[in-house]
Nucleic acid binder design. Structure first.
Lengths: 230, 230
DNA sequence: ATATTATGCGTAATATTTACGCAATAAGAT
DNA sequence: ATCTTATTGCGTAAATATTACGCATAATAT
């Protein structure tokens, strides 16, 4: 029988953190899920996450659990909502602080100790454990809002990318198609892209230019208050 | 000595909800604070809030505490961030889900049982108990973001208001001055205002027209996706 | 060889935003 | 009572931004 060592005058809920991890495969957005190995919901897919230690913040908990369950280290996660419905966990009262993060697919190496983790394209995502369907839905809507204010999308692309890849990413997140030439004009005028390589002497019109995100220019723009609008 | 009736295998933090309540006095934004009657921080001003019961959500807790401490009933609160720094409460580990709400000043009746509560203009706000300064700063920045997407400002005004009052509200929240005529044009073109009274036969050019928020028109607009931009 | 497609770059048409002008009149000053 | 000032409703020209395309080129597919 369990030893119940920690006592309080009033009942306390357990605290947890969960993570919605987004990736981009070049065409569509993917979400990193883990398969539960224990009850409850054994065998079901769920968001990475787990119980908070008493000496760590919600964010630290999210990052720790993420590394333990998927191998992702030092991921920048952003809290977006706290789920506190009374019956959301069948074991006991659990309040969960939900976070999201954007990572490059290449950062998750399959095969090793994180073999329970798998990337799912949106249309493949099965029904999830706990209230994780709900958490995921909210994360997706937050992602859409955020991409209009911060160029978070660059975290999903390789360091060097083409304009078409960038457009595909925006289209995948927002679910809208843009005119290729207008997207190109708007992005270049924003000034947050730098050409990654010197242009070839013989300018080909079929091999795309490759860009990288210019964080310095972005910082300047952000100061003035701007908007990545679509 | 306290009886410690609730025991767990692992330590659990206490959960709380806090509320940042915004009002508008016609010129500037105000915040509703309560003065603490007990230690810790006895005598200091703080955000309304308190510990969560084991059978209620964070939002229910926020609304209950708000009513207990300020008399405000049935307030629509919106969660915006969860604060989980380890040392934020000197008594024990407390994780707090912060909420904000917009109410009309007239809804808080002073004098009665809620006599500890008082409205502060932004420049009057003293240093607050716990990490409530931090919570308040974040609430203000969320308020600024939200007002550009949702006409939340209307909850702060009386039901019937003039264009100048509405402009004062936007200027107070965003800290920007607008051209009166452009603000007027933009608001009218949006179509979410209705004239509150028939125009007087002899149209005066000094007595302002009075409007009310047209929730139906707003709902239509929201469907299409729009933006209250400034 | 030939057709097709992706790319870089440009531009006219349209819509939106910004910066003001103006007359009427209530309120305040003299 | 008279004059001055401030506020309001309503326009409108200029500046700016967005949208919808055209086009030449070169890599790729047929």
């Amino acid at each position: 029988m369990d030893e119940l060592k920690y006592s309080y005058k009033y009942p306390h809920p357990a605290m947890a953190s969960d993570c919605v991890i987004f990736g981009f495969d070049g065409v569509s957005i993917r979400v990193l899920l883990i398969q539960r190995g224990v009850e409850p919901f054994k065998g079901k897919w769920a968001l990475p996450g787990g119980f908070m230690n008493i000496d760590e913040t919600a964010e630290e908990c999210a990052r720790r659990e993420l590394e333990e369950e998927t191998g992702l280290k030092n991921t920048v996660v952003e809290q977006f909502y706290t789920f506190s419905e009374v019956g959301r966990d069948p074991r006991e009262r659990v309040v969960s602080v939900a976070h999201y993060a954007l990572v490059r697919l290449s950062e998750v190496k399959g095969g090793d100790d994180a073999s329970m983790a798998r990337w799912f394209a949106q249309e493949e995502i099965p029904s999830l454990a706990f209230d994780h369907d709900h958490i995921l839905r909210m994360a997706i809507s937050r992602l859409k809002e955020r991409i209009c204010f911060e160029p978070i999308g660059f975290e999903l692309l390789p360091e060097v990318f083409t304009m078409t890849e960038l457009q595909n990413l925006y289209e995948a997140i927002l679910g809208i198609k843009f005119d290729r030439r207008n997207f190109y004009n708007k992005m270049l005028k924003l000034g947050i892209l730098s050409e990654a390589e010197p242009r070839p002497a013989q300018a080909s019109r079929r091999v795309p230019l490759r860009y990288r995100f210019n964080a310095m220019k972005y910082a300047e723009l952000k100061q003035k208050g701007f908007r990545l609008e679509f």
